[in-house]
Amino acid sequence: MTAILEVKNLSKSFGGIKAVQDVSFDLMEGELLALIGPNGAGKSTCFNMLMGQLPPNSGSILFDGKELVGLPTRKIWQYGVGRTFQITATYPTMTVIENVQTALLSFHQRSFNFFSRAKTSYLDEAAELLSLVGMADQADRPAAVLAYGDLKRLELAIALSNAPRLLLMDEPTAGMAPSERIELMALAGRIVEERGLSILFTEHDMDVVFAHSHRIMVLNRGELIASGSVEEIRANPRVQEVYLGGGSVFADEGAS
């Protein structure tokens, strides 16, 4: 297995507060890697640096051998990185399928096309992505009226529209009902297998993390304190300490 993403010595501080310190890790092809940690551990900061929304103070991010630091978000997306957000970001004034079509149009570099009909562009591709996430029956509803879980799935379809090799998912199941969570992560797992892409995700729900990730990294106060398989992380005393002083907290879903 080769590494699709190589992060080296990534650091970011805000006015003297070190949000992320010297974080290094690799993400293998086809891997579902979880990044966990208590609130304020620096998970979102990490994500925002990976996606080009925040410039790191130092460090390097290699995606498929190419340096991402210094690139704007949209360039990183063009390289084949998709992203979903902690609070969903979709286009509420468009229908579900139009949301996906807009992303597809961008992927096919037609955002500045003034003349063709967008409504009929990439319909099949869009429909296929919607079926993949189980949203085909809602294709023509306005995104503004979707239930939160459906929005999360729509976001996943949008994030897949550039046929990404890496998907960054920031708390993909936050705000969803427990049954939906399992379903969504199972879907993510299937996508990893079928499409051979890699996923890096953050998550609060330990059930989700332990059930679905191949590997887990633990971030605390901006530093990576552990990395390993589900069993290794469960057994790691430092991790237990971070999560409220040990015990069976990993079974407790409201870990934060």
Partner: peptide
């Protein structure tokens, strides 16, 4: 109703999402 029109509305609705899907 053209691709450009979609991008225009996308940029209004959510800059975050639009930039994250490659729209300048």
């Amino acid at each position: 109703h053209s691709p450009f029109g979609y991008s225009v509305r996308a940029s209004r609705d959510s800059i975050l999402r639009a930039e994250a899907t490659g729209i300048n």
